[in-house]
Design a protein around this nucleic acid. Structure first.
Lengths: 213, 213
DNA sequence: CGGCCATTTGACGGGAATCAACCGCGGTGG
DNA sequence: CCACCGCGGTTGATTCCCGTCAAATGGCCG
């Protein structure tokens, strides 16, 4: 439900009026877990990772955020996770206070957030599915397929996927060790399902990958 | 945000007017994955599991649903998961069609769903955290702590936890084999962190469990 | 060229899956 | 009343996947 919802011109304009366009270079922190949360963000271009630092030293990546997606949920007034730009990223920064006022005037804007929340929930379920797949090879295969859905990072014609994240990020997202990322990429390459052009640029054979997934 | 939201009397009444009280005995299916989704549910008492059947034969449990929680999200008109009562369960059944009409009249009811979506996402994140914990023992320890938050199933005084789900359900939720559930329960008992009264009734030493978690 | 960092590769050990068998309990029917 | 069965839970033996530790390689920038 609420799948086909879009804002009208007036609503969009009002939302733009309270938004600021900001820019973050690659690897730059946007906010930190535990910090007071004053803004919600929407990606114009680039990519972001949401990570949560655990007491046992592990770093848990909850989600990768892509263009048009929003992030910046707060819990008890603070951000429960850190947000870090993966690549050169352009954002809309929207102050919560102004947003809540705006929703009073244009209640339909809230639907936008409901939509985002539902999308995010779906993404969380797919993530859970991936991260608990018994074989690590299949986790990675599924991950590559997920990434190839992002038009900005996958070229349909050449089948070249540009990874916005490094090996450690992938490992933290899928729940295994950095070394395993390398090993499994090698195995996929040995199986002729992918071809590594460089560490970040990979040619995919989506059909073959789907077969083993 | 939206944490402190509650319906007023009029809204609650209107919602009740379109709801039907229904009952499902233990192990009874409420709906099946792939089925056309016409209702959303809210648990009055009991417990429900949401599971997704995978093509490789595994059964993936996305969530356990407790009293006051809602479930029944649809994707493309159908339920993406099956819902099954774990124990004798009483529910509110709310038709989607009537609900969408009601939101037109009382837009604030939508906030209830936004709230639910955000809660669900939080739960999904905790689930992910649990299910990817490197040591199986800690996964189970964390799971028992989660369960002990449900007042209907955990007695604060006697510290007795009543498990609504069986060993297989726990295994499917935490991402390991049935046998592992048994083995780890035994290990927790050997460590004097729990005591099994029967297969479903367990005395917890929450303090000690938190220490190892 | 040299240093740093990300990535890759190798060797080894451990933890959990798998494949079995066994146990305990409730239900059923002779 | 008890033997039999079925099902959920437990335990044991073996295998293997992946984490860990260690070292080598490669790319990038000063």
């Amino acid at each position: 439900m609420f799948r086909d919802f879009t804002l009208n011109d007036k609503e969009r304009e009002a939302l733009n009026a309270i938004s600021t366009k900001i820019h973050k270079p690659a690897k730059r922190r946007i906010y930190t877990q535990g910090e007071a949360g004053r803004y919600v963000y929407r990606i114009r271009s680039g990519a972001v990772r949401l990570e949560h630092h655990l007491h046992d030293g592990r770093n848990h990546i909850f989600a990768f955020i892509w263009p048009d997606d929003m992030f910046g949920t707060i819990e008890d007034g603070v951000y429960p996770a850190s947000a870090i730009a993966l690549v050169d990223t352009y954002l809309f920064q929207i102050p919560y206070a102004a947003l809540l006022n705006l929703i009073e005037v244009y209640p339909r804007i809230q639907t936008l957030f409901l939509q985002q929340a539902l999308n995010y929930t779906k993404a969380a379920q797919r993530h859970l599915l991936l991260a608990t797949y018994p074989l690590v090879l299949k986790r990675l295969a599924g991950f590559l397929l997920e990434c190839s859905k992002q038009a900005d990072f996958y070229d349909q014609h050449s089948n070249i996927l540009t990874l916005a994240m490094d090996r450690k990020d992938i490992a933290d997202y899928l729940g295994f060790a950095v070394e395993t990322t390398s090993r499994m990429l090698k195995e996929l390459e040995d199986m002729r399902l992918i071809k590594r052009l460089s560490s970040q640029r990979i040619v995919l054979d989506r059909r073959k990958i789907m077969e083993i997934f």
